[in-house]
Design a binder for these strands. Structure first.
Lengths: 119, 119
DNA sequence: TGCTATAGTATCTTTTAGGATACTGTAAGG
DNA sequence: CCTTACAGTATCCTAAAAGATACTATAGCA
């Protein structure tokens, strides 16, 4: 039953990355090192405050993202990737590379479909 | 706005792999090359027929998995990874590796927690 | 004659993720 | 005194994913 064991481990990684906004949050933090809450919000069109909060909390919970609160008014909260969080970058990169390939593959299928069924 | 472009591409990969049973299905097919429907079902404890069917159909749709039907009774249907599907293996592997690390990381956190709060 | 194996469908219900909207407190600036 | 920026909560609602359960056809076997 070693197959199940392996599966569980893949699921572990998935749980971190899955979430509609997590990949983009991580990519932004990898690029910019440190970002404030509203900075992230502005950089991610379409996200609501609630969604940004919950996704960040989940990433924080898993020790991927660091949250630093400054005792100021108006509030200032900075997010960054933890030392441990950096270890996930290769996974994002593998996915990014494959996605590029996949988009290409889909494009070709579509083209084929169109030329086959039109004249 | 190159950030959004990158994000979209990661999402592409995620859509393929996400689905509660897709990783284990893919891992099994990578290992065993060819498997019949019920063979998969028996290898994945807890999955229902409906779930197995829908997940396989989605993978087939994306050209990751091949479905071969034999005109027999009782039916015989064989599933395998397509040539294109093989290209996704590095992604699974990156995730698998990181997951191992992550489990280790979590274990350490838990241990720390326990020793800190008991006596 | 009934039973089994195979590879599914068809329905219905539950669970979870995601989203819309409104609200909070407080300092600085006009 | 009113408004803005900031970083959130609190509620409610919808849509999508997942799950439970029952059903299908048919050849071969005892």
């Amino acid at each position: 039953m070693e197959k199940q064991a392996r599966d569980c481990q893949v699921d572990e990684a998935l749980e971190i990355i899955v979430g509609k906004w997590k990949p983009i949050i991580l990519l932004l933090l990898f690029e910019n090192k440190v970002m404030r809450f509203n900075e992230l919000k502005r950089a991610i069109p379409g996200i609501t405050q609630k969604m940004l909060t919950t996704q960040l909390r989940e990433l924080e919970e898993e020790d991927i993202v660091n949250r630093e609160v400054y005792a100021q008014v108006p509030p200032k909260v900075e997010y960054s990737i933890t030392a441990y969080g950096k270890s996930i970058e290769p996974v994002l990169e593998a996915m990014h590379e494959w996605s590029t390939l996949h988009l290409e593959h889909k494009k070709n299928k579509d083209t084929k479909y169109i030329t086959t069924h039109t004249r």
